[in-house]
Structures are given as C-alpha cells and as structure tokens.
Design a binder for these strands. Structure first.
Length: 238
DNA sequence: GCGACAG
DNA sequence: ATCTTGTCGC
C-alpha cells in the first residue's frame, strides 16, 4: 500500500491548488506561490544513507507514463528497492510546467517504496527554472523531503565555458543569480545541470551528485530510475 | 514579432 | 520523452 506517501507532509490541496488542471497562466501562478515554500537550507552536512532516484518514461505515443523510484544505499551505491507505477498521461509537455505532467505518477511510485528516503534525486531542474520551481523543487515541497534536480540540459540560464575533465564545474546563472551547477560528470559527455530542489544548497547539491557517480554520466539513483522507467521495447519483427 | 524551450 | 545502426572518441 501507500506506506510512504502517508508520511508526507502537505495535503494534496496545498500541493496542487488547482487539482493539476487549469490554464497555463493558472499553473504558472501556482508555481510562483509554491516557490515561496522552497528552502535552500541544508538538511544534511554529509551524504545521507537512503537516496531515491525517480524518473518517468513514456510509451510509444506518450499515452502512458511509467514512473520508477529506485532506493539506493549511498554506502554501496547499490539499489535496495524499486517501484514502478503506470498511469495515463494527463497533460502535454509544456516547457516550464513539467512537474504537473510527471509528479502525480512519481508520487505514486515513491509511495510504493518500503522505507522513506532521506533525499530525492530526479530528472529535471530544481530552482534552475523561470519561476525557481522546477520538478525537483515541486517534488521536494510536495513530500517535505530534501531533493536535488539533475537535468541533462539547460532550461534557462548561462555559464562560462566548462573544462572537459571529469569533475569540472561552473555556476549556472539566471540574470547573474546563481541557481545551480553545470557539472562534467564524465569526460567526453555533455555536462549535467544540477540545482537544489528543496532543503539543500547549490554547493552541497553538486557535492552529493558527485558522490553518487560511478562510470556513467548520470548519478546512480537517477540512472537506475531512468532505466527502469523505460517501457519494455518490442523485439518482435513480423 | 521571432526564437528558445527540463522531459 | 521517443524514433533508431553503426560508429567515433575518451
């Protein structure tokens, strides 16, 4: 059952005031209001043990959203629990409003985990967003849990040129304000865009992501969730 | 008015 | 996000 979700802090009415529906301007106003609940204060001094990665994959014609939540033990970087939930897609993808499309099913998947994560990592932006309220920030505020956004590309913001070596970092700026970190997680790969979601600062968010890297471009929690969220591909050829 | 635009 | 085989570089 929904063991974890019941422990989450805010009631649905406060998480999504318009019940996920409404016009684009309506949804933007919701983000502006909820952005005020985001905290950049660090909830942890060092990497906590239980980290959940979440991601959403779409079927062939984007009819079904498949959310995956993978609980990883940061001491071993190995998965200790997984959950997958599928649900019809309710909204189209609109840049800047991703969370309204993906969060409903993500919350369902998180609810299936056997224990409450200490920290969440998800695909997409945290505060590196036009209204400082990307999906990672929304997820953090919705659950009350610390969260970090790990995106594969920039939504908004600029940065100085980034060295090619692994570990290189540059601040991501929006109108001169630091909102995240452009991080070369792996040499020869496009950098990751790391930004705080909730209850963590810019610098520590990048540190925690680095601590979860192995040989791949994505940190383990997100990488595993990404794989799990992909619908099984047809192998049949008539 | 014209592009840009997480997943 | 998804559609897709082979191929070039760290």
């Amino acid at each position: 059952m929904a063991r974890v979700l019941k422990q989450f802090t805010l009631p649905p009415s406060l998480l999504f005031p318009q019940g996920w529906s409404g016009t684009v301007p309506d949804l933007r106003r919701i983000q502006e209001a909820l952005a005020g609940r985001v905290s950049l204060r660090n909830a942890f001094r060092s990497l906590p043990r239980w980290i959940a990665g979440v991601d959403v994959g779409l079927g062939r014609f984007a009819k079904i959203a498949r959310a995956a939540a993978v609980l990883v033990d940061s001491r071993t970087l190995l998965p200790v629990a997984e959950a997958v939930v599928e649900q019809p897609v309710a909204l189209p993808y609109i840049p800047g409003l991703l969370s309204f499309r993906e969060l409903p099913v993500v919350l369902q998947a998180l609810a299936q985990l056997p224990r409450r994560p200490d920290l969440l990592m998800c695909d997409g932006q945290g505060i590196a967003h036009p209204r400082r309220f990307g999906i990672a920030a929304h997820l953090g505020v919705a659950t009350g849990l610390p969260s970090i956004g790990v995106a594969k590309s920039i939504l908004v913001g600029t940065h100085d040129s980034l060295p090619g070596r692994q570990g290189a970092q540059r601040p991501l700026l929006i109108d001169g304000e630091g909102v995240g970190t452009v991080l070369r997680s792996r040499a020869g790969c496009a950098p990751l865009i790391v930004s705080p979601g909730h209850r963590i600062g810019i610098e520590r968010a990048a540190d925690f992501v680095m601590a979860m890297l192995t040989r791949y471009r994505l940190p383990e929690p997100t990488r595993l969730a990404d794989r799990l969220s992909k619908p099984p591909r047809d192998t049949e050829h008539r």
